[in-house]
Structures are given as C-alpha cells and as structure tokens.
Amino acid sequence: MTGRARRVAVVLCGLLLFGAVTACSSSGSGGDTHGAVTAELASDNPVPISNDPRPVLPVTVHSEDGREVTVRDVSRIVAVDQYGTYGTTVFALGLGKNLVGRDTATKFPAAQSIPNVTPGGTQLNAESVLALHPTVVLTDTTIRPATALQQIEAAGVPVVYFSPTRSIATATTEIKQVATALGVPALGDRLADRTDREIAEAKAMVPADAPKRKIAFLYARGTGLLILGGPGSGADTLIEDLGGIDAGTAQGLTSPFTPVTTESLIAARPDTFLMMTGGLASVGGLDGLERVPGIAQTPAGRNRSVVDMDDGVLLSFGPRTGAVMIALAKALYPNR
C-alpha cells in the first residue's frame, strides 16, 4: 500500500459510522433493473438471544495481544471498535443493560443514551473510560492510542482484545469469543447458530440462474474522499456471498481500500455501487454521485444502480451479519 493509500485507509477506519439502505439495480450483468429500492433491517436494534443472561464468572480468556485475561465482573462493560461489532454483540447476548461505554459505530437506538467514548471514531481517552468505572473493556487494535488502553489496564480494569479482521467467515467466531469473555458461552453458541441460519437464508435468496453482476464498494465522504474497496475490505465477501463479483478485486486491486481515480472507476466497470448511506448523502445523493468524474461512464452510473446501507452495520460482521445480508439480498433481487 502506498503512503497515500495507507493514510486514506486510516481515515476510512475512523469514519464507518451512519444509516439506511437504497438500491438501484444494474444492467450489464443481468441483475434486476428497478430504479431506487429501499431495504431495511427487520429490527432497528439487535435482537437479544436471551432476556435473562446469567454470566458464570470468573473466566480466563486468551486475549488477541497474547495475554491471558481474567474477567470477574461484567456489570459495567465498555465495548469499543471502529465497526460497532462488540457493542452490538453485547446487546445481542442480552447484556445491553450492562454496557456503560460504546464506540461511535454502535449507534442503533437502544444504545444512543450510552456514553460514546470514541467521539472521533477510533480515538479513545483513558480518563473518559475510567470515569465510567468499567469492570471489563472489550476492544481490538482499531482503537487508538494503544497507550490509552494500557493506562486503563494499569488501573486494574481487564482489557480483552479480539481480532480486528472482519468477514462473513469470522463473524460467528467473534460472537463466541465475546460471549466466552463475558461468561455466557452457551448464549454465544446460540447467537452464532442464529447468525449462521440467517446467513444461509440470505445465500438461498440469490437466484441460481441470475448472471453475476459486478458490484463495487465505494466509500465516500464528499467528492474529496472516494475509495474503492478491494480484497480484504470485508465488502468483498458480502458481494461474493450474495452472488456478485467484487469489482475492485476483479480489476486487480491488491489493497482493501484504494483511492479512486476517474480511470480506475471506468476500468472497474461496476454494474452496481455498494455504498454507506452517509457516504452517498455526502456526495449529494444519486444526482450528486452522477456528477463525480467517471461515474457516468460506468454501467452502474448510467443505470443509477446504487445500494446504500447504514454505515453502522454494513461492515460490522457480528450478530447482525445475516440480517444485513438478507436486507441486501432483497435489495439486489427484488423480484426473486
């Protein structure tokens, strides 16, 4: 990754935040063609797998940073990562009432009254976390600075790290790991099973006879920040498991996120753009997107084919992964 691409990817990591779903279909790859279609998650909030979780503690778990961490109390949980995965998982395990601190991406209605300890997206202040008197912190290396987390640990608070990798393949593993750290492994198994069933349901919604359309994940924050997703972006696995071809990967990109040029957009030739709702709004919606150089020269641009989805859920890859995939499948294949 070039220095500029690395800087842009860091900016991207701090901005995965917003909400909704709109889809316009494509042309070239034979997808359904239907103007603007809105798809939404069945529930605004994560659906708890249990209304009466009973953690069994203490529990000692292996942290991603190589330590063995003992958790003795989960009555005051702080869960922070750039995607909102851990906060969502806490709620989905039925422990939402125990969450006292969250990240910016954990933005569903039930979490809005909980203090946001990463107001800038990924930057954490140790004092603001310690002021919440947490009994455990769940995090990964997407949160900075590392010294803040070290300060929290030095104050006697157990800090458990998990892998920062996000994909469909790792979603249920992460659920089980978080559940184990919180003393509810059986609920983690149930939640993972439910998520797997929803993922399978979404995959079954992809018509077997549908020609594969080329879909490009386009991250935007105004016309000054446009990034094309590639291998490892997370969006690539969503696209592929929903019967599409990831345009960035097919074009030969080697980095998860690459700054967009007019030439790269035209060369990618996507049939559909996959975007975050806040990103699409930041360029002025569909009309504004059409004015971005290169967009109108793509099949997706000519057909106004865009699927946009809540910034807070699209790439979170946790207990709502299956629900996200079902919503996207409905948007991509409205007549199937």
Rank of each mutant, 00 (worst) to 15 (best):
residue 1 M to A: 11
residue 2 T to A: 08
residue 6 R to M: 11
residue 9 A to V: 14
residue 17 L to H: 14
residue 19 G to Y: 12
residue 22 T to Q: 14
residue 26 S to Y: 01
residue 31 G to S: 12
residue 32 D to C: 07
residue 34 H to C: 08
residue 45 N to T: 15
residue 46 P to T: 12
residue 50 S to R: 08
residue 52 D to T: 13
residue 56 V to M: 10
residue 62 H to V: 13
residue 63 S to E: 11
residue 70 T to A: 00
residue 70 T to E: 03
residue 72 R to P: 01
residue 72 R to D: 05
residue 73 D to H: 04
residue 73 D to M: 04
residue 74 V to T: 15
residue 77 I to Y: 05
residue 78 V to L: 05
residue 80 V to W: 01
residue 84 G to T: 01
residue 94 G to L: 11
residue 99 L to Q: 05
residue 101 G to E: 03
residue 104 T to D: 14
residue 107 K to L: 05
residue 108 F to T: 04
residue 114 I to Q: 09
residue 116 N to P: 14
residue 118 T to P: 12
residue 118 T to K: 13
residue 120 G to H: 11
residue 121 G to K: 04
residue 124 L to H: 03
residue 126 A to Q: 08
residue 128 S to Y: 05
residue 130 L to I: 07
residue 131 A to E: 13
residue 131 A to T: 13
residue 132 L to W: 14
residue 132 L to K: 15
residue 133 H to V: 02
residue 141 T to V: 13
residue 141 T to I: 06
residue 144 R to T: 13
residue 148 A to Y: 15
residue 154 A to W: 00
residue 159 V to N: 09
residue 164 P to M: 04
residue 165 T to F: 00
residue 166 R to T: 03
residue 167 S to M: 09
residue 170 T to Y: 08
residue 186 A to Q: 15
residue 189 D to C: 02
residue 194 R to I: 02
residue 195 T to D: 12
residue 197 R to F: 00
residue 199 I to A: 02
residue 199 I to P: 06
residue 200 A to N: 05
residue 201 E to L: 12
residue 202 A to L: 07
residue 205 M to A: 01
residue 209 D to H: 13
residue 212 K to V: 03
residue 215 I to R: 02
residue 219 Y to K: 02
residue 219 Y to P: 07
residue 224 G to S: 11
residue 226 L to Y: 02
residue 229 G to E: 14
residue 233 S to I: 10
residue 236 D to K: 00
residue 243 G to V: 06
residue 251 Q to W: 08
residue 253 L to E: 04
residue 256 P to I: 00
residue 258 T to F: 03
residue 259 P to G: 01
residue 262 T to G: 08
residue 266 I to C: 05
residue 270 P to I: 06
residue 272 T to P: 00
residue 273 F to D: 14
residue 274 L to Q: 10
residue 275 M to V: 11
residue 280 L to N: 07
residue 287 D to W: 10
residue 290 E to I: 00
residue 292 V to F: 13
residue 296 A to H: 05
residue 297 Q to M: 14
residue 297 Q to W: 08
residue 298 T to I: 06
residue 298 T to K: 00
residue 299 P to G: 06
residue 301 G to F: 09
residue 308 D to K: 09
residue 314 L to K: 00
residue 315 L to Y: 08
residue 315 L to I: 13
residue 316 S to M: 10
residue 318 G to P: 12
residue 318 G to H: 10
residue 320 R to N: 12
residue 322 G to E: 06
residue 325 M to V: 04
residue 328 L to T: 08
residue 329 A to H: 03
residue 333 Y to R: 09
residue 335 N to F: 04
residue 336 R to L: 02
